[in-house]
């Protein structure tokens, strides 16, 4: 059964182009069945009626699939509950009277836009370098032409689940986007459709990642722990193999 709890919040507030700071708020009478974002909604209603400006945070689907939401909660991306996005974190995991620290994702390549909202457009730029199969509408052969081993399709799907939230980047001490990039490279490396472009895909995406200021991988595995979709760190190994192979065979 649900109950009501009271929390103390320390929330990062920052305006565009200014330095940020923590501010204190109280979240009172929060239903333990509410989600973390619904708790923030309640706090924002109070801030608004009190004449203040509500806390800006990114969110949309609130069912853990769009990848919009994400903040550091007590230092952990999406909070400390494993395989969860912030919108699917429920207040029953907090204790009455607890102090909760809420900050934006911290990474060199994710500048803060406002409060808890960061700019993750670098992830789109990485995808644009080859995170797809270049097939024009109308080019496709009949769908059943090429059978694909079920195990391969499943492994590809495991990687394809990435929601692009950026938690892996924020959790990495180097601010690397290796898990994100690896997931996309793996999805296509595991399927025959991805093979014609595999060389330029991995080289293009990795180069873009470096260019945008995402850090290097030093095998901390924090990314895999932070990933709300449980994307396996083995994908990074696959990315490295793809990269080495591509570097050796690329004709450019």
């Amino acid at each position: 059964m649900s109950e009501k709890i009271n929390l103390k919040l320390k929330v990062w507030r920052q305006n565009r182009g200014e330095a940020g700071r923590f501010e204190d708020y109280e979240a009172n009478g929060i239903d333990t069945d509410a989600s973390f974002l619904e708790m923030l909604d309640v706090v924002n209603e109070e801030i608004t009626l009190g004449g203040g400006e509500p806390i800006a945070f990114e969110h949309d689907c609130r069912e853990g699939i769009c990848g919009c939401c994400g903040s550091l909660v007590n230092g952990k991306t999406h909070g400390s509950h494993e395989r969860t996005t912030l919108c699917q974190l429920h207040m029953r995991h907090f204790k009455d009277g607890e102090t909760v620290v809420i900050e934006p994702f911290r990474a060199t390549a994710f500048p803060v836009i406002k409060d808890l909202i960061v700019d993750r457009s670098g992830l789109d730029q990485i995808i644009a370098e080859g995170g797809y199969v270049s097939v024009k509408t109308g080019n496709a052969p009949e769908a059943s032409t090429t059978p694909i081993k079920k195990e391969m399709a499943e492994a590809s799907m495991d990687a394809a689940q990435c929601i692009g939230c950026g938690a892996c980047v924020a959790a990495c001490p180097n601010g690397a986007a290796m898990l994100f990039t690896a997931a996309k490279v793996s999805q296509y490396a595991l399927l025959p459709q991805g093979h014609p472009e595999r060389t330029q895909r991995v080289l293009g995406m990795v180069n873009k990642m470096d260019e945008l200021g995402f850090g290097n991988c030093s095998n901390e595995y924090e990314c895999a722990v932070a990933c709300p979709k449980g994307i396996d760190v083995k994908n990074i190994a696959r990315l490295n193999r793809e990269f080495v192979k591509a570097s050796l065979t690329s004709e450019k």
Partner: peptide, 8 residues
């Protein structure tokens, strides 16, 4: 088309 795009 979606199979050709590599949708698993």
């Amino acid at each position: 088309h979606c199979v050709a795009q590599g949708i698993p």
